[in-house]
Design a protein around this nucleic acid. Structure first.
Length: 321
DNA sequence: CATCAGGGCCCTG
DNA sequence: CAGGGCCCTGAT
């Protein structure tokens, strides 16, 4: 299938709260690579669906870190309303209005977090995807290693996503829940996603029947949001934790430690091979309170950024791409 | 070649 | 509330 050309252009300047760390916010090296976004030097490209329009998005830092320069690519000419909707959505997805003052104050008193926070000051939790889209990604993460997750997601995008071309990038935009809900489970299974086919079907039906789910859940308290997420078929503690932090930007959402993260945090927090989940959680609550997940995020992303330039032997053994 | 655990989750007893 | 089953892969 030939990619759809997005040739209409609209430029917007998005002011952000300061301090804002463009690189740390726009690119998360701990995330697996998928053909839905691309980061290079000082530019992030991604695709985004808003009200069934597919946009190509390009963002660069501007105004000395006080704003983001946004270019929206579209198939047809956009209305001002569409531009505003897309901009508002991007502001949320990249937490451009987050107030980090309290977090910075807290980090200054913590020996482990202090140097990392200073290095990444202004980094936000961010996620280029809608809640439904991130949920699809996290389903591919379940019980699989990275390489397999990438294969599953790519197969799904090729089968049901839409290829678009803009600004010399060819990327996929996600399928919609409505579309996926009509696909027979056998067809999904043929993409080698295994038992997850059932989850994809149920999740697609759920989101297609509840189009305002994300809008509503954003307004809820974190425990309420967590409870609603857990009611979705296929969402357990690990998946709901990813969604709360990445898609809903809850800086406290750290109540679950997955096995490989447990190994990494044991090293970083205690300089030990393996520390129990309860101890890791207890310690992080004590040190970082309601900012504990953001703190863990800073520590994690710093480690993965360092991995790009230096070899960290013990880490390579844990990741197993 | 066969076996098995893996960045979970659901369901059953 | 513990534990088996689920799918595919890559490691052994």
């Amino acid at each position: 299938m030939k990619p759809i050309q997005l040739k209409y252009i609209h430029d917007v300047r998005l002011p952000v709260s300061v301090p804002f760390n463009f690189w740390g916010t726009m690119h998360k090296p701990s995330h697996f690579p998928a053909p839905v976004d691309h980061f290079e030097r000082d530019t992030l490209w991604l695709t985004m669906r808003v009200e069934n329009q597919v946009y190509g998005i390009r963002m660069k830092p501007s105004d000395g870190g006080r704003s983001v320069s946004l270019r929206i690519f579209s198939k047809k000419k956009t209305t001002q309303r569409e531009i505003d909707l897309a901009s508002t959505e991007l502001r949320f997805r990249f937490a451009m209005d987050l107030d980090l003052e309290e977090f910075i104050r807290l980090a200054k008193k913590d020996p482990l977090l202090k140097p990392v926070e200073k290095k990444w000051r202004g980094m936000r939790p961010s996620c280029a995807f809608s809640l439904y889209e991130l949920l699809c990604i996290t389903i591919t993460l379940q019980n699989a290693q990275v390489s397999r997750s990438v294969k599953m997601l790519t197969a799904l995008l090729q089968a049901y996503g839409t290829a678009v071309e803009f600004d010399n990038q060819t990327l996929f935009s996600f399928w919609t829940a409505e579309k996926l809900s009509t696909i027979p489970e056998e067809d999904l299974r043929s993409l080698k996603i295994g038992y997850r086919a059932k989850s994809f079907g149920r999740v697609a039906s759920f989101f297609s029947a509840n189009p305002s789910f994300e809008k509503n859940i954003r307004r809820l308290s974190t425990p309420e949001a967590a409870a609603q997420l857990r009611e979705i078929y296929g969402v357990g503690p690990a998946t709901s934790w990813y969604l709360l932090f990445e898609a809903l930007k809850r800086p406290e959402a750290f109540d679950h430690v997955s096995p490989w993260e447990q190994k990494i945090l044991s090293r970083l927090m205690f300089d030990k091979e393996l520390v129990s989940e309860t101890r890791i959680l207890r310690e992080s609550r004590k040190r970082w309170g309601d900012w504990r997940m953001l703190a863990v995020h800073y520590i994690f992303e710093d480690l993965f950024w360092r991995r790009k330039t230096e070899r960290i032997k013990w880490l390579e053994e844990l990741i197993r791409l």
